[in-house]
Design a protein around this nucleic acid. Sequence first.
DNA 1: CGTCCCGTTGACGTGAATCAAGGATAGTGG
DNA 2: CCACTATCCTTGATTCACGTCAACGGGACG
Lengths: 205, 205
Amino acid sequence: MRSQTDDLISRLGVAMSFVKDEEIYGQGEPADRVYRIVSGAVRTSRFMADGRRPVGDFYHSGDIFGLEPADAYAMTAEALSDSVILVARREAIVTAGGRIALDELMWQATVRELENTREHLELLVRKNASERVASFLLCMARRTRAAEVDLAMGRQDMADYLGLTIETVSRMITQIQGAGAVRFEGCRRFRVCDRRALETLAATA
Amino acid sequence: MRSQTDDLISRLGVAMSFVKDEEIYGQGEPADRVYRIVSGAVRTSRFMADGRRPVGDFYHSGDIFGLEPADAYAMTAEALSDSVILVARREAIVTAGGRIALDELMWQATVRELENTREHLELLVRKNASERVASFLLCMARRTRAAEVDLAMGRQDMADYLGLTIETVSRMITQIQGAGAVRFEGCRRFRVCDRRALETLAATA
DNA sequence: CGTCCCGTTGACGTGAATCAAGGATAGTGG
DNA sequence: CCACTATCCTTGATTCACGTCAACGGGACG
């Protein structure tokens, strides 16, 4: 569904290029811009005092991010790969579409964010390692209609997102593949062989 | 801070009594009411197909809950103990304060909910068992200025909330008490002996 | 062709779950 | 007021899943 949101950002946004691992915005910066991905992918994460870096979420082509319900960004956003991203200033949106339009966008973004976070939380409380990885693959697969799925992120990012180590992620992928649910071609591309099996492994209620 | 919200609900709400474990609303029901706790406590949880029951959050005297950013409640709310709760229909709030007033309330509630959920998520990803329990006790202690803290919930609810088993929760409490940070008098009442130590144990960055 | 980086695999250790008894506590009825 | 019982909490022994440590492999790039 192509919403008014997309239109506004598309119309007002300026395309910017980011190289892999480049920071798009940092936590604590004033949240005065909104982003829409043209190509590439993005992760949000939070740098902790102890050096750990829990991943908040991943965004792909077409996704909108940066609509925080606060004055400052709560997380840092970085490009997972070389990316082209539309950047629109909030100000511009208000000017073009009115305060109501921005509020509407914020509302949608916040509600979606809440749903995502709840789901993510449930994944972490209720699921074991293989279920987490299976859920993740399933989620990535749902994003596309193509038979082949490309992972935008490396193992470390997956691990941080899933609350696991890269070794465990790797083992679980091997295991899920062994069960015949998916088949990897290289370590970033896979196809879903048996969707039902994958759903079972993901324990998707 | 006594907000307009409180006033509206206090003015429009009807006091209802609930006995321990009584359902206040169920997941999937139309979310057409808002609640404010007069006395007692409430937990929200989600019943899963597999029988597990992750706890979403706890609410205490004065807290408002039931403001869902959707047409239906995403979780079930139940009384932790015998409780008196003000119930106001959303309709009534719109009539009395206008659509804007309700929107305002919804917005606040949703943003707060998002913050809570993010914090909860971080607790689950980053902290081990003893840190989780210490964080929880600290959080409960912060709610009150009294020296003595009463836990409204039993071990099972704590365990579900923290993503642990009751045995582990119990052991960690024993351990934290052994460290001299808190002292329990009965299993639902404790006092914080050494706040600094408790904060250290909680690994509150 | 060599180097670097990332992913995979194996061996081992550990923290929390599970299994299994006890104790404490509160509610109930005599 | 005191058994009696059900429920909840604690504690111990054992198991198991995942983390840690370490080595190896394989693709990308100069």
